[in-house]
Simulated scan of single mutants.
Amino acid sequence: MRTRSTARTVIAALAGVLLAGGMVACGNSDTGGGSGGDDKIVLGFSQVGAESGWRTANTTSIKEAAGEAGIELKFDDAQQKQENQIKAIRNFIQQKVDVIAFSPVVESGWDTVLKEAKDAKIPVILTDRAVDSADKSLYKTFLGSDFKKEGRLAGEWLVEQKKSASGPVNIVELQGTTGSAPANDRKEGFAGAIAANPNLKIIASQSGDFTRAGGKQVMEQFLKANPKIDVLFAHNDDMGLGALEAITAAGKVPGKDITIITVDAVKDGMQALADGKFNFIAECSPLLGPQLMDLVKKVKAGEEVPARIETEETTFTQEQAKEALPNRKY
């Protein structure tokens, strides 16, 4: 009887150990790679702001893609101020996030804070906008558009349209945020392209800060100062849409009296193009979220990624806009 009793005691004890071991294993499985687990990637993202329809669509894409990828997103809105982005990046470093991504407000002035991230061994991904740092080791990759190409495509279209013009063609330019990569590059690309036709002259160029209100205000100034304006090149749709209001208020017909070229191809801009108020749009896609999350996973895993990854984009005329609008996602 003692032998049987002892055997039962040993079996019960072994069963208890196995059960406990099983419970520990299940506990580890739940925390590893699941919601709130230690293995979940944490991404700190600093956004420029919410200055345009493009930026709103970009933010939505990033938030939705993070959720779908199972990545914990710490999101910060810099409200178009570089000092806010630098503060956010330092906060991400203190929080020991796994990866930092941001869309720089301007191109210069990032080396110090990016060096801090590098010293903390936190990889950085640039999205949408680049920086002008000579030290390329401060970030892993850039994901976004070729802004110079967008400006060049806009200029090449205008050169083709005005190839038979015998006299001067007066152009005004609504620039993006001063010092930002898209403003610098779109201006350079456009200017380089229109140099092919000496009749095309930029008679005024000023920043509208990528906002609809800024586009309207600056266009009002252009119209008062320049009685003859033939073409408007706006660095984004929102400034172009603001300019429409000013042009209409001045008694001119947008798209006819003044040829309007913009960049982005958000829904409101595409509608203006379909309606004949805009004449041409070079696309700049904001839907970077899925590509960004894929890059986040790769750099966290220590994989090599290309130094620059460009999004595929196109251009639109009025008829092409009409065709694309019903299925437009942004």
Rank of each mutant, 00 (worst) to 15 (best):
A181I: 00
D294Y: 01
M219L: 05
I122E: 11
G70S: 01
Q206C: 08
G32Q: 14
L153M: 13
F278T: 06
L14E: 04
I203P: 02
G269D: 11
G27L: 02
G214C: 12
G289M: 06
L325D: 09
I281V: 07
E107T: 10
Q320E: 15
A78E: 01
H235L: 03
Q85G: 01
E312F: 08
M23W: 15
K140R: 15
V172C: 10
E160D: 15
V159E: 06
A274L: 11
L19S: 11
Q206W: 06
V113Q: 04
A243G: 09
Q85M: 12
G67I: 03
K63A: 11
F233R: 04
G155F: 09
A65I: 00
G214T: 11
E72V: 02
N28T: 01
A57N: 05
E156V: 12
Q85T: 02
I261N: 08
V106S: 08
N236A: 01
K228A: 13
I62A: 02
R4K: 08
A12F: 11
M239I: 00
I203W: 05
M293N: 10
W54R: 01
A196G: 02
A50W: 07
A88Q: 04
T314Q: 08
L292P: 07
A301M: 13
V172A: 07
I247T: 08
A7S: 12
R152V: 04
P290V: 10
I258G: 09
P123A: 10
D185H: 04
R55P: 09
K297M: 02
N84F: 04
T178M: 07
E188W: 03
A134E: 10
I281G: 07
V305L: 00
E156T: 15
G215W: 03
L174R: 05
D237I: 13
A134Q: 04
M23H: 01
S108I: 09
T31Y: 14
I89C: 09
V124C: 05
R152L: 00
I203C: 03
G27M: 03
D268P: 08
P227H: 14
L244M: 07
L232M: 02
G189S: 07
A101P: 02
D294Q: 14
D185G: 05
I309K: 09
P168H: 11
F75M: 09
G251V: 14
L223D: 10
R186G: 07
G27V: 04
K74W: 04
A130R: 15
K115A: 12
N58G: 00
T315N: 12
I86F: 02
R186N: 03
E156D: 15
K163Y: 03
V131D: 00
K87N: 13
T211L: 09
Q221I: 11
